[in-house]
């Protein structure tokens, strides 16, 4: 047992370069940039990102699309982000906290099911960036007079992006 313990901990001193931050505590992108959406009516979807403290999304990397029979999305109504002059990217706009985006649905049919896909890309203040991440929710466009549909959370995939 002692030997097993030593073997387990053995490589640590050799590889320890005094870098306790070798593995900063970080969330997977689907949790750091939690996505949800609801259909307000047959012509409007309200998409939402809840960005965890210490993380931010790039405004110009947001993309939305629906998969359904016949309907599509008009231009997203993106609120103004926080402008910052990035040393590398020039003027960029970023979002932190809660972000709500209205998406016009073109040719939306009441009662129709749609699959909303959202691409986003962001970083953590800890100094890492995530590759573009796609999240999706399945919504049903409400029938007239029934009010907005329920808020639907994107499912966090059980496995990573590539396996």
């Amino acid at each position: 047992m002692v030997l097993a313990c030593l073997l387990t901990a053995g490589p640590a001193p050799a590889a320890d370069s005094g870098l306790p931050s070798g593995r900063p505590k970080l969330l997977p992108p689907e949790q750091a940039f939690h996505f949800s959406a609801r259909a307000l009516d047959a012509q409007t979807i309200e998409a939402r990102f809840d960005v965890v403290d210490g993380y931010y999304l790039y405004r110009d990397k947001l993309r939305f699309a629906v998969e359904s029979g016949g309907s599509s999305l008009g231009p997203a109504e993106l609120p103004a982000g926080k402008r910052k002059k990035d040393e590398f990217f020039g003027d960029v706009e970023t979002y932190r906290g809660a972000l709500v985006i209205r998406l016009p649905v073109v040719n939306g049919v009441p009662g129709q099911g749609v699959l909303l896909k959202a691409d986003s890309q962001g970083c953590a203040d800890a100094g890492v960036c995530y590759p573009p991440t796609m999240q999706q929710v399945r919504l049903s466009l409400p029938v007239a007079g029934s009010g907005p549909g329920p808020l639907v959370d994107a499912q966090v995939p059980k496995k990573g992006l590539f396996n």
């Binding site: 387990t8 901990a9 640590a12 593995r23």
Partner: peptide, 11 residues
């Protein structure tokens, strides 16, 4: 503890 040390200091 051994496994924890190994995980936090080296991947």
């Amino acid at each position: 503890a051994g496994a924890y040390v190994a995980r936090t200091t080296v991947s």
